[in-house]
């Protein structure tokens, strides 16, 4: 079985060398069903996503807007369990480096080391942890290091220089820059504060920087790709699935959106104002 390796960093660096940003696509495991979510992720890779981000559906997702909340609720109502997330990761990791995005309590409940071990043996690359800050992450950091997994912490426009340093030091894989002060969800305009945030992060680290929150189409992806190593898209994928009438419509919608975004991340650097 060929696995894509337990860090996403080489993928991001290869994209950078090719003069473009990497496209990171998010969908929750078990949405709309476990099998269907695997099919959708496969479609994403086929249509040009470089890295996959599999969401672990959680009952109290405070960082998420209504779109991803609805998807998580649907996945939980359909009976999605933590073990199903590993199954989805195992299938996804065959195709592209795969991270899990999860709130902290399900990891702690599963057992931090056990979670890391099972994620690693499923071929997963690591975790994105939206409500775990490095200050509270000692147990996760040592488990991730033990199992060779990426640790992706977030930085935000409100982060002080001291906290940018703390998060950058703790991250492995890339640093997730939250482009706006707010929750996930597609927005009309891309963030005005994200370029400055990325610049501040780059002042303290050489690690790749990904930007998420609010990107929903190729044009916006191109804007963000002008300054970020990775463009992370979540709500727009979820919305395209929610709005599709059936499974095949969802597959086509995801394929179309991925292609548009993949074009965008390739257009970014060329159109970038220097």
């Amino acid at each position: 079985m060929s696995r894509a390796g337990r860090t996403v960093r080489p993928t991001l660096e290869a994209a950078r060398e090719a003069g473009r940003s990497a496209l990171v696509g998010y969908l929750p495991a078990g949405f709309p069903t476990v099998d269907a979510s695997i099919g959708l992720l496969r479609e994403m890779v086929r249509s040009g996503a470089d890295v996959l981000e599999v969401g672990l559906p959680y009952s109290d997702p405070v960082m998420d807007g209504p779109t991803i909340q609805a998807a998580a609720q649907q996945a939980l109502a359909a009976g999605t369990r933590t073990a199903d997330v590993f199954a989805v990761v195992a299938a996804a990791a065959e195709l592209a480096p795969t991270l899990v995005m999860t709130y902290w309590n399900p990891v702690e409940r599963y057992g931090v080391d056990r979670f890391a071990a099972d994620l690693a043996s499923a071929g997963g690359a690591g975790l994105i942890t939206p409500d775990l800050i490095p200050d509270e992450a000692a147990e996760w950091v040592s488990a991730a290091d033990r199992h060779g997994l990426d640790k992706v912490f977030l930085v935000a426009p409100s982060s002080t220089e001291q906290r940018l340093g703390l998060a950058s030091d703790a991250c492995r894989g890339f640093i997730y820059a939250a482009a706006v002060m707010g929750v996930t969800g597609a927005r009309e305009q891309t963030s005005l504060v994200a370029p400055d945030l990325v610049k501040r992060v780059r002042a303290v680290t050489d690690k790749p920087v990904g930007v998420g929150l609010g990107v929903s189409n190729g044009r916006q992806a191109a804007e963000v790709a002008a300054y970020a190593d990775a463009v992370i898209v979540g709500s727009a994928f979820v919305r395209s699935v929610l709005e599709a009438g059936d499974e095949s419509a969802a597959l086509s919608a995801v394929a179309e959106l991925t292609a548009d975004l993949a074009h965008g991340v390739r257009a970014g650097l060329r159109s970038a104002p220097s």
Binding site: I133, E136, L154, A156, P157, S159, R163, A167
Partner: peptide, 12 residues
């Protein structure tokens, strides 16, 4: 106790 919050809220 502690702080299990989005980074955006840590400075506030």
């Amino acid at each position: 106790g502690g702080r299990f919050m989005p980074e955006a809220l840590i400075a506030p």
